[in-house]
Design a protein around this nucleic acid. Sequence first.
DNA 1: GTCTATAAAGTGATAGAC
DNA 2: GTCTATCACTTTATAGAC
Lengths: 224, 224
Amino acid sequence: MAVAERRRALVDAAVRVIARDGVSGATTRAVVAEAGMSLASLHYAFPSREHLLEAVIAEVTEQERRSAEAGLLPVAAAPADEEPPALEDVVRDGLERYVDLLAADPAREQALLELVLYALRTPGQRAALVAQYDVYLAAARASLTAAALSARSRWTVPLDDAARALVMVTDGITTTWLADRDTAAARRTAGFAARALAALAEPVPGPAREPGREPAREPAPPGS
Amino acid sequence: MAVAERRRALVDAAVRVIARDGVSGATTRAVVAEAGMSLASLHYAFPSREHLLEAVIAEVTEQERRSAEAGLLPVAAAPADEEPPALEDVVRDGLERYVDLLAADPAREQALLELVLYALRTPGQRAALVAQYDVYLAAARASLTAAALSARSRWTVPLDDAARALVMVTDGITTTWLADRDTAAARRTAGFAARALAALAEPVPGPAREPGREPAREPAPPGS
DNA sequence: GTCTATAAAGTGATAGAC
DNA sequence: GTCTATCACTTTATAGAC
């Protein structure tokens, strides 16, 4: 068995164990048992448990990046030639999709959170943590850009600020739902957040067929 | 030394150790070393490490309750006889105070988060977790009620929904700041959240001295 | 490369002297 | 009540046979 393949199998097993038993439950023995190999094989593929966890963080980060990319493609494909959807609806759809994903696999989201806290406490994992967070921010920027394009709007605040607000919202929705498991309430919260985010954009005056129906909008103050 | 006093000393020591080294670092030996007593004394005061952590969660929950209560008293004392402050400003002040608190003692907030995740994974701690979350919600309700009173406004959505949104916002601000440590960005995010929360309320038509200056406001749709 | 066996240290909990 | 000493077990990591 090639080392790379063994590394991948161990990382996958570690992800499953962490989702089931948490980071502290992901002992070397638990991981090799999940992967169906011997303890020594782990230390042949990785010098230490910490190196394995570093690879785990890198792997889930990459998975998040891919799933965010896949998630926003349908949004980008949406714009029709005629009436664009309201930005608030586009954002709410996206956030509600995230709530569904969270409710469908809460163990995974909790595992991601635990990995963040573990990385915060482990000096050697600082780089992996920064990379993970950068992926979140990049995904948020891409999602917001795609949503605005689809709704023919543009953001009236710096894109980075809006992206940070979106990350804040998803983080908050996650921890709150993990605590109370109230999916209906989480969807209401998502709707509130969508309204708030949509208020940070304005419609783009495009080639409107009925210009008179364009709603009057005061421009955002330049300082905001 | 009375048992109750020893329990308190152990809980305080455990809080310090968790803030410094995380929940997994709060071994029985680390806690008694911090408290300056012997290992057997811990098991005399608590039947197990798990019981100690249950007491820790109860204690920090109570501390949070008290600090939330103290934090909103100045807000409640604010209403003057004349022009009320804008609700958005009141909410933003409160959130920025929270950001300052977070930046001043990040270890504590991270410890609270870790305790939540630990309680989520430990079946016997479910009750403590629910209590902790209820305290957050109650504090959010109280803060929002006080803020609305101070700004002579009333919430146009159910108070529970607004409170949940506030908890979501503080949770999201916390995790995001813990990851990037960008206090200035967190304050901008707090400002955005304050605007969004304030949009969930409307001014109360009170005994206005200059009714003509009352800004026109369309009532919120009853369904929202 | 892959295993068994084991080292070395840490863990929660307890027995028993005082 | 409070301690030292220790049990029984788990942890990461490695040595060495094959």
